[in-house]
Amino acid sequence: MRECELTLRDGRTLFVRGIVSPLHGFDVNPPFVTLLPACDTIEQEAMFETLRQLVERGCVEFCCAGSAAETFHDAIDSFLERHALVDIVTSWDTDAAGACEYFIHAAGGKPPVMLALVGAYDGLVDLLLTEARSV
């Protein structure tokens, strides 16, 4: 599991965490955006409790990255619509590099904080950090 905290050149902060305890040590002011891994192995239902907590803390956009990104995106949309949270934006990219690019450069109108719950996926972390350094 790779966890880190990185300040980008434009002053924004990127937190990389695992899915298991994503909110540990994550005490920041809203708004922020969250990157979620969307591989076939992800237990989507198990993540919804985490999503609820993230929304409560001020997440304005969930970005799904990986081969199952579109399906996962639809599931998150369904969860949000069920809870009348239609102001929360969701986005997806099945291409991991494209997803990381979007997450770093565009998600949520570039709020000061970004949370990436991809710590268990080395490839995604590498792509994300490469993109973060390009800012």
């Binding site: 949309d77 619509e81 009348a84 239609v86 934006v89 986005s91 565009a106 109108g109 570039k110």
Partner: peptide, 28 residues
């Protein structure tokens, strides 16, 4: 529920477009 689904998707599209507008006006 179906109307809510459409409203959510439209809201997301609107948000993406607003962010592009913010870039064009220099806000982002």
């Amino acid at each position: 529920q179906q109307q809510e689904r459409i409203r959510h998707l439209e809201k997301e599209i609107e948000t993406f477009k607003k962010n592009i507008e913010k870039y064009k006006t220099g806000e982002l």
